[in-house]
Write a protein that binds this DNA or RNA. Structure first.
Lengths: 343, 343
DNA sequence: CCTTTGCGCTAGAACGTTCTAGTTACCTGG
DNA sequence: CCAGGTAACTAGAACGTTCTAGCGCAAAGG
C-alpha cells in the first residue's frame, strides 16, 4: 500500500527522493512523471514503482513556477448562486479531461469581484472564466488585455473587445414560454419584469416579440418588479388589486415566480386552474414538488462546455466568435394549464 | 494609474524588475513587499512606488515554493450544498484577516472527495477544512497523519485521533424545537427521522430526551424517512393514513419539512392551525415567504470561525479540544402555533 | 572503417521568490 | 579614538520543478 499522504515528518518526497531510489537523475524522473517521451520502458517502470513506493506527488507550485504554462483556468463564481454551482460542476467535467485544472475564487459578502479576480491572477491562471460578472465593462476590458476572459451568462452591450461571451438566449426563452402559454389557449399574459437585472431586457423583448407574432401585440403588459421573491409578491398584489388578474404570468425568474405564487395562493387564486405561472432558470426551487414550477431552463452543461472551449481556443491563439448564444429549454411542470375559459 | 493586469506582452513584472527600477536589491524589495522590518523609510517608499508604477504583484507560487509556510487552508465543500456556501463565506471572513488564504476544492458529480482532497494536498495546503466529509474515518485518520484536519458538521464516532471536529449540537437543536412546541401547548409531537444521515441519530436522541423531560416519554413517535423532500412527503402521507395526524411534526431537515408541508397542504390540512411543522438547518428554503418555516438554525459564522481557529491552533502546535460543539438557534417563523385544541 | 542518426540519459541553468549570512555605515558610550 | 551595537542593505543559495544542451552508445548507412 503506497502512502497517499505526506509522512508525519512533514517533508514530502520530491523528485530527488524518487531519483535517488530509482538510481536515475531528477530530470529523468520528471520526464517519466509527465509521461513525456525520452525514457526507456524498463527505467520508466522502475521510476514509477519508486515514486509509488515513497508516495511521491509532484508539487504543483514548483511545476507551475518553472513551466510557463500553468494549465490553470481561473473561475470566479457567486457562492450564494445555485446556478453557478451547476456551472462550476460543468466546468470541472470539461476542464479536467481537456488537461486543465480549475482554480476557484468565490464572490461572497465581504469579498468582492476585485478581490476574487485578483487572487486568480496571483495564482497565474492562464484564462479567466467569470460567472455572471458585475464588474464594469471597462474593468473586463482591462483584464482581457492580460489574458483571455470569458464572461458566462452576462451579455455585454456594446461588445467588449477581447472579452468572450457565452450566454443563454434570454429572448428566445421568453418566446418559448409565451408560445407554450398561447398554445394552451392563453391570450392574457402579463410579464413581471426584472428591471435592470442582467437578461431582463432580453426577456422583456422576447416576450413582446412573441406576443406580436401571435397577433397579441396590443395585449402586452409589463409590470415592473425585480429579481427577488418579494419583488414578485409585490407585483402580484398589484395585479390582484387592478381588477381581474390575467390568465397567465411570465415571471422574470424563479424567485420572482415563487413570490407571485405565494401571493396568489394566499389570496385563494388557484394555480394553474385560474392563473398559470412560468418562471425562468429552473433553479432548485422550481424543481421542488411543493412548487413544481413550469420554467425556462438554462443549459448549464452546454454553457460550461462552451466557456472552457472558448478559453482554451483563445489560449491556443484561435479565432473565436466573440459571443456564443445557447438555446434555453422550456420545462413544463405543474403551474401551467389551459385557461378556465377562453377569455 | 498603475496597471492592475499583466501587460499585453505577457511577461509579468517580477521582484527583479522592481529592484532595477528602484535601484535596490531584489532581497530588499522582498522585504518591503512582505512588510518585514529591515528597510529604511525612504527606500521603502521608493520601492513601493516603483512596484506600483510597473504594476508588480508577487507570484504566489514562487513565494510558496520558497517559504515553507504556504499560509493556505484547503477547503473541501459540496458544490450543491447551500449550507456549505454559508460556511465558506464565513471561512473567507475569518481566514483572510488571520493572514491565511483559502484554496477551494469542490465535491461535485464527477469529482469525488478523494480527487478534491488530493488537489488540495497538491497545492501544499497547510491544513484541511472538510465540510461535511463523507470519507471513511480511516481515510480521515490517514490524512491527518500529514497535516491538521478539521471536520466541520460531521461528527466522528468514535473520535478519530488527530481529526478535529467542529459541529452543531444536533441533539440540543431537536430539544429546543420540542421545547418550543411543548411551550405552545403541543403534546402530540412526531419526529420524522433522517435515518442514517449525519446528525440524524443525535436529533432523534434530542427529541426523545426532550419529550422525556416534559413527561411525554410514552408519546414519542419516530417515523422513518430520509433527507429529501420526497422522504418527508412519504412520511406525511403515512401519518395522514394512520388515523388522526399529530398536532406537531419535527422534521429531520428543511427539505424533509418542505415535503411534509406540501402533502399536508394538498390534503387540506392547515399549517400551522391544525398541524405545526418545524424544520432543521434554516436553509434558503425555510426563509422563503412562501414556506416561512420555523426551523433550527446552525450558526455558520461560528462554525467557520472555530474551524479556522482550530486549524491555525493545530498549525501552531497548540493543544486543541478534539471536538467543539456549537449551540443551534431556534428560528420561529410561520409554521408553528398553539394546537387548535389541547389534545 | 568512419560518419551519421537517434535513443536514453544527465548536468546544470532557469523560474520568482525567501532566507541566511554577511558587509557597510552610522551611532553611542567609554 | 576605538570597541560594540544596530540599522540598512546585499550576495548568493535555496525551494522543487522543467528545460536546454549535450554526452555516450548502439545501430544504420556510406
Amino acid at each position: 500500500m503506497p502512502p497517499t499522504t505526506p509522512g508525519p515528518r512533514g517533508r514530502r518526497p520530491t523528485l530527488a527522493d524518487v531519483a535517488a531510489r530509482a538510481e536515475v537523475s531528477t530530470a529523468l524522473v520528471s520526464i517519466v512523471m509527465r509521461g513525456a517521451k525520452g525514457a526507456g520502458e524498463a527505467t520508466r517502470e522502475r521510476v514509477l514503482r519508486a515514486a509509488r513506493e515513497i508516495g511521491y506527488r509532484p508539487d504543483t507550485r514548483a511545476r507551475l513556477l518553472r513551466s510557463h504554462r500553468s494549465r490553470l483556468l481561473g473561475v470566479q463564481f457567486g457562492l450564494q448562486q445555485p446556478f453557478h454551482a451547476d456551472l462550476v460542476e460543468g466546468l470541472y467535467a470539461v476542464a479536467e479531461p481537456a488537461g486543465y485544472q480549475l482554480a476557484l475564487s468565490a464572490v461572497a459578502a465581504g469579498r468582492g469581484e476585485e478581490r476574487a479576480a485578483q487572487s486568480l491572477l496571483d495564482d497565474r491562471c492562464e484564462a479567466l472564466i467569470l460567472l455572471g460578472p458585475q464588474a464594469p465593462a471597462a474593468r473586463l476590458a482591462e483584464l482581457s488585455a492580460g489574458l483571455p476572459v470569458v464572461s458566462v451568462a452576462r451579455r455585454l452591450r456594446p461588445a467588449v473587445a477581447g472579452v468572450e461571451v457565452v450566454r443563454t438566449a434570454d429572448d428566445e426563452g421568453a418566446r418559448r414560454a409565451v408560445d407554450h402559454l398561447v398554445g394552451l389557449g392563453h391570450r392574457d399574459i402579463v410579464h413581471v419584469d426584472g428591471g435592470r437585472a442582467p437578461g431582463a431586457a432580453d426577456r422583456r423583448r422576447g416576450y413582446r416579440t412573441a406576443l406580436r407574432r401571435h397577433g397579441l401585440a396590443e395585449r402586452a403588459r409589463v409590470v415592473a418588479a425585480g429579481t427577488g421573491e418579494e419583488d414578485g409578491a409585490r407585483a402580484a398584489r398589484g395585479l390582484l388589486a387592478d381588477g381581474p388578474p390575467p390568465t397567465a404570468v411570465l415571471a422574470f425568474n424563479d424567485d420572482c415566480a415563487s413570490g407571485i405564487l405565494d401571493v396568489l395562493l394566499r389570496a385563494g387564486v388557484r394555480v394553474p386552474d385560474e392563473v398559470s405561472v412560468v418562471g425562468f432558470d429552473d433553479s432548485r426551487l422550481a424543481r421542488l414538488a411543493h412548487i413544481d414550477l413550469t420554467t425556462v431552463a438554462q443549459d448549464a452543461a452546454r454553457l460550461a462546455d462552451l466557456a472552457v472551449g472558448r478559453a482554451i481556443a483563445r489560449l491556443e491563439g484561435e479565432e473565436t466568435p466573440g459571443e456564443t448564444v445557447v438555446a434555453p429549454r422550456l420545462v413544463v411542470r405543474g403551474t401551467t394549464a389551459p385557461p378556465r375559459d377562453g377569455s
